[in-house]
Design a protein around this nucleic acid. Sequence first.
DNA 1: GTCATAATAT
DNA 2: CATATTATGA
Length: 623
Amino acid sequence: MLSSLLTDNRNLELIVVTVKKPFDALSILRLKKGLFDLVVSDLHMPEMNGMELQKQVEEEFKLPVIIMSSDESKNVISRSLEGGAAFYIVKPANKVDLKNVWHYAVAIKTGNSLSIKEIEGSREPSYSSTLVERLSLEDVNSATSINDEKRYRKNGRKEERKSTKDDQEVDSQPASKKPKVVWTNSLHNRFLLALNHIGLDKAVPKRILECMSVRGLSRENIASHLQKYRIFLKKVAERGGCSSKNLSGRDDLRTNFAPSQPFMMFKNVQQEYSQRVTRASIQPGLGGNTIPALGGSSFRNLHSPNQQAPSNNSILQSPYGQSRLFGNANSANQANQIRSGLESNYSIGENMPSYGGVIPNGLTHGTRPMQMYHPQNQARSYLQNFGSPPLINRFGAVGIQATNYGSGVGDIGIINNSLNTNNNYVGIRVTTDGRLIGSGQMQLNTNELSNGFSDGGHPCLMNWARNGNMNVASIGFNIASENYVARRGSFSAGFEGANQFFPPTPFTSVYHGNSTPMLLPPPPPQHQLGLGNGGQNDFVFGLMNNSPPILGGNSNQQPQIGEGEPNVSDMLLEPTNNPPAYQLPQGVAQMSTPLHELLTPDFLNSLHIDDNTPRNEQPSSQA
DNA sequence: GTCATAATAT
DNA sequence: CATATTATGA
């Protein structure tokens, strides 16, 4: 059923009926009650103006009305909008307007085929014609004006498609462009959840589709994404790490610094924490009072529970050298040996065994083990060896283990000490349960070396050091009410070498008390380091959060398609009967399988998935 | 269901 | 203009 629905959605098209007079419009609306979803009307019309029509339509059919007019005066516009018009379009309508119309139409109509009724004042038919023509020619899917006089047709390679609704005077139009599905991070996260749920080996488009339950998403869409994802996995599996060449390529990263998409992640982190700290969007990676169980005091345990990690597998040890940043990190090469150390029953401050959580998370692709990358494992080894009193300053940089205050700083200082052409510090304070209670000081462009870590009083938590070959970012959190930090929250580092980038590791995985592995395949961007300039700019296929948290106070803004998607954790934490919908271009999504059925609270807590931003795209910053 | 590749977007 | 992403057809 769902699939048929989706199928229908894919064939969704606009059915446009044009009439000359408002009353005709009303007549047809009455006649074809339920067929229409949207009315587009001129403002100025003979018998009844657009606003009156809108009122009538609203009252009688509860349909949104878009008013168009060449009248640009603010007065008129605002009056129309206040009067209840869904949109006001100044004629001649431009591409953006039409896009909005389309989006709006799609948004309000989520399942069935979409109909747009265009009502045309007889006075100025040409305007509407213009609209319709552009609609069909330029932009949105298929939209056309069908009446006896005019027929606009896209020069498309596609010929007519079947109309989903029959109506004598309604015809369907060739599609000019099919809107692409945008794989936002949240959507992708959902995809990952589905994969995780199904199991990678059994994950095929159809099943994924079912599991994802995103309305508007087709099997093909998923197949395509899956294909990409598999390619990605393959690369990861083949190239366990990055070659050092990336690390040594350039003297000046600045030129290559920001442009590539992956880097965005880091920028987002910065952005988020420097600008958007009003909401504690970071959820500690661990639920309850558990902490990641890292091996004793040994970094290597983290990386490879079963093996001794090569001594050079830590970026911390030789950031400039031949080290492979994460390359050997998962030296538990067999997929089924990959374990997450994130589950732990140990409390903060408690000594832990070499590794507490043994969560196999093996993934396979066919017969081949897929090595999933668990950056949080490698990157977040900051939590260990909390003595008594607990040591502080143990978070932040990738995989750094601080043994004590001083040396901890020193260790971390490998990063910090590395040429500091740029150090940014951003402080964020978080309560023990992860709530953000304020931001700390921020220092920009200082050459001062800093440990970048809080000792409880100095919340310099984010540290971004740069050297000729790489950039390292780290973010940590100060848990204000405790004397030690970063128990639960920390961001790890991002690296960029030449064109490549190690994204910071968002909190991703967390498990449940029981052994159900909930770990999602997190972002393994390390392969990028091996690619060099000619390499493909790969995507990060893990849970991530690129988008700024949605802050309060903007509720009066009309959500755009693609915005305002629910974040997964929100959905999960508060299951609702009205699950928020993903709004995909060709249809509006609706979750039919609540994710909370798949997930556990702890897991959810660990996730910060609210990203509505298209993957690999930088979210727009909030003004 | 997958793969290669065309189409489209950035 | 090149690259990346998504759609599509075999």
